[in-house]
Design a protein around this nucleic acid. Structure first.
Lengths: 158, 158
DNA sequence: CACCACTGGTTGATGTGTCAACTATCTAGT
DNA sequence: ACTAGATAGTTGACACATCAACCAGTGGTG
């Protein structure tokens, strides 16, 4: 299953550039959020999910499923955000184990202040510098890499 | 400079896939290092740099320049790794402010145990699923995104 | 009902990353 | 030689991410 697995110098050069791009893109978007709305990337993910939710509130477990974080990460993040007044917790009537996470006025203000500039940043740093062909190529590549990561599971036997 | 900045639904779909790929690729490689050598990604970056250095040791500032981390991050990471016996600090004769970071026997063992499998993982999850054209496209795209992030600086005037 | 596995969520410990403040040394201009 | 400013590195505080342990409520099945 695993061959000799050589990687040429030219391939390493692509890998390093790709790696640098991923790091710097994350950083640039993080900086933009901090600058324009005083929030972090994780803050934004939570706030955006709540904002797009019909009731402006979600169950912790649904946030977890939507964003793809484990439950303890949600809980810690929400605690920090609650302390800053961006969200608020409330009890769940239906299921006494549950917790609602709701957007506060402050949280709503923050996400509204962040969205436009964030979208602009993604457009400027990403979409604007890609040709349609490259965009299609990147989509195909991303799908294939994801496929390689997540168990092809056609043959799990060892 | 900033237009209306709309992003179509198709574009968002590409963005989300690209985003998921970046996260999951990081995670998969991190897991592989942990599994095969009991080290983290940051550990590996330090260890590999030291290993590829002629003397198997580097000045903190050179590590910083090579990996692209700020000095305090290097210092914290080295402290943790020193506690686990992967690296060791020693004084610098030439410059009394300086510190050498050297690979220990344990550190050498760890990096040797990690390298082969890490390379294989990168090949399996990345290079093997890209065509030569896609690789070239990705290289071009990465360069252009990096160019967009780092100040074109041709016209900084406001 | 009684039991038991599961689910929803919190908490604490540890590792990671950033920023600001600090110490110590080096270097250059005078 | 003196001194101002740059450089090298450490430290502490805080935000973030993961893991394991835990508690409480839910929902079967006997």
């Amino acid at each position: 299953m695993s061959e000799v697995s050589e990687v040429s110098e030219a391939e390493w050069a692509v890998w390093r550039t790709f790696y640098a791009m991923r790091r710097q893109l994350d950083r640039a978007l993080e900086d933009q959020l901090q600058r324009d709305a005083g929030i972090s990337g994780p803050d934004y993910e939570i706030l955006l999910s709540l904002f797009e939710s019909p009731q402006r509130r979600m169950r912790s477990r649904d946030l977890s499923a939507r964003i793809g974080w484990e439950k303890s990460r949600i809980s810690h993040q929400v605690t920090r955000m609650e302390n800053r007044g961006l969200v608020e917790r409330s009890e769940c009537e239906d299921d006494l184990r549950g917790t609602w996470i709701g957007l506060t006025t402050e949280g709503r203000r923050a996400v509204l202040g962040a969205m436009r500039e964030h979208t602009t940043a993604i457009r400027n740093l990403f979409f604007d510098v890609l040709t349609p062909d490259e965009l299609a190529s990147l989509r195909a590549v991303s799908d294939r890499v994801l496929g390689a990561i997540n168990p092809p599971l056609c043959d799990e036997a060892s």
